[in-house]
Design a binder for these strands. Structure first.
Lengths: 196, 196
DNA sequence: ATAAAATGTCAGTCAGTACAGACTTTCCTA
DNA sequence: TAGGAAAGTCTGTACTGACTGACATTTTAT
């Protein structure tokens, strides 16, 4: 285990960086603070990463947020509205919650990493398209109350996005149970509102 | 007009600060950049504001976001679900959009202004309570499909919060028209899903 | 036209911060 | 237990950024 120690150090530093960047933003954190949080000296940080910027980039690479998104629709759909919405919603929140710190970094980062926002929105956008297609097909199968499928998809996703945001930002965060129940209700409401 | 020139300068500087803080966060912007954006010298900035921090505070004071929120329910309610949801939604987005830059600052601010997040969530929380009460009363009037009124309120608000976020953050922002139509659909969906 | 107010210029202070080099110490492993 | 890899320490550099003071210039009201 010669190179694994090195790697573990890198990982600890990246973890610390993600934690602090997500709390205070890129400029709001010093390399010294990151090193301290990770339990190493600043020098070690720079032995592992060329620069602070490089550290941020590697921290971003660590997350597979965008890739994971794509997998949501790989789950078997049953073409039963309530079941499918439930499945999509659960998967969505699982991914969003796992990647919550990365998302907070994305929201806080400004001029550094100009491409980051675009990167972050690429796959949610794909998700929106999948969901739109899904609704269109459901409509074709006459399982959907006549409605604009794109707008419905946007509504569903943004409601979930809002909920995910709320879950990770608010002071009294939802408890896991409370949150699950809200999701259940939301799927029920959409189902009721969309069933012919 | 002796003091109004001074005041206009202050306002221009605050405007510039809000613009840049909302884009790049507090630490992501220098006083020199703010002054340049406002069209003044850095020295003038410091003649008008004690410090960068003070400038941020005054920029925050400029907004009445939290106060405005309270007014949403002052509009006459008709106790017709669709009309009322429409009214609430419109007012909510009007306020959110006017204060979008402030909201972006709030989301980006980290350790500076520790009380800011709390301040930002105080009135939306009140809003949630009002809406919960509204749904409870509607239920009493048998105009609401049996449902947990608190969860419904949360869903409605977070959907709108998500939409507001999307409107101000995404690269291809919604057009005003598109957005209005989405709101209309969302109110229709909630109405359909909540009407007995 | 003039005084007062507002702004600009310029030079400078001071603290913080990213990052580097030289050297020492600790840790793991063969 | 020796030797190399990884980490620490200490010192230093170069730069940035918030903020100040002294003085010059412009603007505005009378």
């Amino acid at each position: 285990m010669v190179s694994s120690r090195k790697q573990m150090t890198s990982e600890k530093i990246i973890d610390a960086a993600i934690e602090l960047f997500s709390r205070n933003g890129y400029e709001g954190v010093t390399t010294e603070e990151i090193a301290a949080e990770a339990g190493f000296s600043e020098k070690t940080l720079f032995r592992h990463f060329k620069s602070k910027q490089n550290l941020l980039e590697q921290a971003i690479d660590r997350y597979h947020y965008a890739d994971e998104m794509r997998a949501i629709f790989d789950n078997k759909l049953s073409w039963n509205l309530e079941e499918d919405l439930s499945l999509i919603s659960e998967n969505y929140h699982r991914i969003m919650y796992r990647n919550r710190k990365m998302l907070q970094i994305i929201m806080k980062v400004g001029k550094n990493l100009p491409g980051l926002h675009q990167y972050a929105h690429r796959h949610p956008q794909a998700l929106q398209e999948y969901l739109t297609d899904y609704f269109a097909e459901m409509k074709r199968q006459q399982k959907l109350f006549a409605a604009d499928e794109e707008k419905i998809a946007i509504m569903f996703l943004y409601m979930n996005f809002g909920l995910a945001q709320g879950r990770m930002n608010e002071s009294p965060a939802f408890s896991d149970n409370e949150f699950k129940e809200i999701l259940k209700e939301s799927v029920a409401l959409f189902t009721r509102g969309l069933t012919p």
